[in-house]
Write a protein that binds this DNA or RNA. Sequence first.
DNA 1: AGCGAAATGTACTGACTGGACCATTTGATT
DNA 2: AATCAAATGGTCCAGTCAGTACATTTCGCT
Lengths: 220, 220
Amino acid sequence: MATTTDTERRGWTQNPDAVKQDILTVAVSEFAANGLSGTRVDTIASRTRTSKRMIYYYFGDKLGLYTRALEAAYLRVREGEATLDLDHLPPAEALAKLVSFTFDHHRNNPDFIRMVMIENIHNAEHLSASQVIRDMNVAAIDKLSRICRRGQEQGVFRDGIDPLRLHWQISALSFFNVSNRPTFSAIFGGDLFAEETQADMRRQCVDSILAIVSRPAGTP
Amino acid sequence: MATTTDTERRGWTQNPDAVKQDILTVAVSEFAANGLSGTRVDTIASRTRTSKRMIYYYFGDKLGLYTRALEAAYLRVREGEATLDLDHLPPAEALAKLVSFTFDHHRNNPDFIRMVMIENIHNAEHLSASQVIRDMNVAAIDKLSRICRRGQEQGVFRDGIDPLRLHWQISALSFFNVSNRPTFSAIFGGDLFAEETQADMRRQCVDSILAIVSRPAGTP
DNA sequence: AGCGAAATGTACTGACTGGACCATTTGATT
DNA sequence: AATCAAATGGTCCAGTCAGTACATTTCGCT
């Protein structure tokens, strides 16, 4: 009896992958909200369709789960970025689009930002252990490098641009805008983060970045 | 016997203020290193010349101590900033100096940066409760406002500059440079944070900010 | 020179929390 | 249908940690 078949996927048959995914999703949300030591494994378990037992079964211990959750957060975000197709745009437009996208993308993924903040608090100890994450990000630099190279070849960008530094600057503005919003708002009020103002700030960021790569005035 | 008089201040007489200060200093360092829930009151106590009992006596509970430690961190940093005298410099130079200073100052005060990161993780709940901190920072904006006004009066800055947004941008670059150094280094290597490179990046930051305030080319 | 309040030390506890233990069910393979 | 590994559930424990009770010392004041 009790043919609960097909309650969700296949009813109440085993489904290891779904269980793992379920745990990971909740874990990202909890770790992002409460930090590593602030997060309770029991709380994660209770928000899950399974039990604490399963967390330890699949992830070993709290740190293991945290590390995997960190990877998951990076993965999701980099997936989003992969949809961007920039190679067919003129370099300046491509760069502008990349900056705009990054700015918005960070705003739309606060959990990811918070995971990175938390990982920085922990001196990136766990991220260092993850080759996966390193690879993903190095790939992100490639995208930027291609734009720079095209820009220089076409003579619209100045020479000697370091893609990594450019990435640094783009990240700084986009990241800070999300990461420090709470303290910034608490001190100066939330005006800067109103929707219209943010659109304007995004433009300002694009301009800043373009100013960096564009050749100084009067250099043919 | 045991005339331990003058071991430190007045030997072993009571010294409430020194005790409080002692606790606060250790607390800043511990909270900055481990976050709010990651910090152990016992650890703070053990690094102190006094006991856990005193922490609760003076600060009530862990949160009380954290809040005061946060204030202390802000105070120390803003004190450093107060030494800057910019009003006698030409606007562009004053701004350049302010950016350079901020960039270095943030680098030299990682504990402060970390406290702010942590507070952001906690959505600035505790900072909101501190009027002191708000006041300090609003004063920081004043300094920037004066520079902007002078720049506009003298015609070297463009019109319509928002000092708050400028502050946002200066902070973003200077803050991110410290806050995200661990993850950034873990992913891309530490080259960007070598001493020489940092000097170069500071210059790049100054240039970026100056580009924002300078009037567009061909605007008399 | 002594009294009351402030300051400090020691030892303890009650709750929380990461993790382990033991038992049971599911499912693929034979 | 028998078997064994993978998956799962429920319960408990041992260590940790914020906070407290109780007792004692110091000090300003008169």
